[in-house]
Design a binder for these strands. Sequence first.
DNA 1: TTGCATCCTGACCGTATGGTCAGCTTTCAG
DNA 2: CTGAAAGCTGACCATACGGTCAGGATGCAA
Lengths: 212, 212
Amino acid sequence: MAETTRPMRRQDIRRENEKAILLAAEKVFAEAGFGGATMQLIADLAGLPKANLHYYFATKEELYRSVVQNIFEIWLQAANCFDAARGPVDGISAYIDAKMEISRRHPDGSKVWASEVMHGAPVLQDYMESTLREWTDGRVEIIRRWIEEGKMDPVDPRHLLYMLWATTQHYADFGHQIETLNGGKSLSDRQWREAKENIKRVILTGIGAQPA
Amino acid sequence: MAETTRPMRRQDIRRENEKAILLAAEKVFAEAGFGGATMQLIADLAGLPKANLHYYFATKEELYRSVVQNIFEIWLQAANCFDAARGPVDGISAYIDAKMEISRRHPDGSKVWASEVMHGAPVLQDYMESTLREWTDGRVEIIRRWIEEGKMDPVDPRHLLYMLWATTQHYADFGHQIETLNGGKSLSDRQWREAKENIKRVILTGIGAQPA
DNA sequence: TTGCATCCTGACCGTATGGTCAGCTTTCAG
DNA sequence: CTGAAAGCTGACCATACGGTCAGGATGCAA
């Protein structure tokens, strides 16, 4: 840790504290849900007094909103891989890799997102009706084109997307279950690789994807 | 409603009230999470005074535990279809149908289960380490045998199971997202049928399942 | 009819939580 | 150097929540 007693710039202070709070909040919200999370717990984890949280984020809702929006952006970002692809093999492989990497590196974020959606997306409804819908429609169109071009079987694009989302996020959201069934140990590098390869293989074979 | 002023038997009273409470609790826990749910809300939804809840279920935890255990049993029950099957086509088809039916008929239960696992299974850890593990090991063995008998490609059985769980439960847990992307409407009979068929087709094709 | 076990509930309690605020310290532009 | 703005925080408050309980109502066996 480069944390000497060196004086900090105002800007740095703000940035670092917000970052610490958001990180702590993500973890606590993921572990306890919105209702179960307490500002005190988040404060303790961030190493700050509770009142300091309210200095940066006026209310619990505002903090939660920030956490969820952060995740949503990471989530959408994984989509880029999808676009540049020449065909289903490239595109879907890259997307699965990206989403699995998110599940592995940001399991807390994934859980918060899942929780948000499960509770009816009280915070993100707007985003779902605009950004997410546009994103989805775009990918549906790409898949439809692939089908027309004979690059894959005529599978319903929406259900295919749901399958991709479900399968990849499962490794984050149900990570605890997977660990338990893995003898209480988290998946090794090798097991993660196997997971990715199995998913890719089953889905790509399942949709009859033709190398572009 | 067959609720006339007819006097009730003691037995009936107990059974009906417990049922009403469990139903209301399932819904509230699903919508708000354990932390966000309040006994008052559950009581209101069940049409009973809050104190009456505590007559039947001493604590919030005890009520929650009952709800979660109920779901776990329904969940395991869907496994039977899997066993009697002669091969992967029959077995996995039946399992997908059963789990999709659960997602459609018990979305709240599915959400509570998901929530429980996401939060580290504080209540169900024992079950996961015993019942769930045994169940899983059994199915893994069946799948392994199918592979040996050449009835399907050599896919990792565990990752295949995760894929089945993820894909089917997604329609309950992320039902709100799916509805939003469906123009705000819940899926029609036809759309549910299409969902099932797409899933079955992709997975069965993906694992190279041979009709037994 | 009687007595008892079960069922029911309004009123109450202690605690934990989200949020506030007055007043302190620190940074930094001028 | 100085003053104002930004950052910080212990102490405090109102509320909401889980849970309790005394005592009334109701079903039922004998």
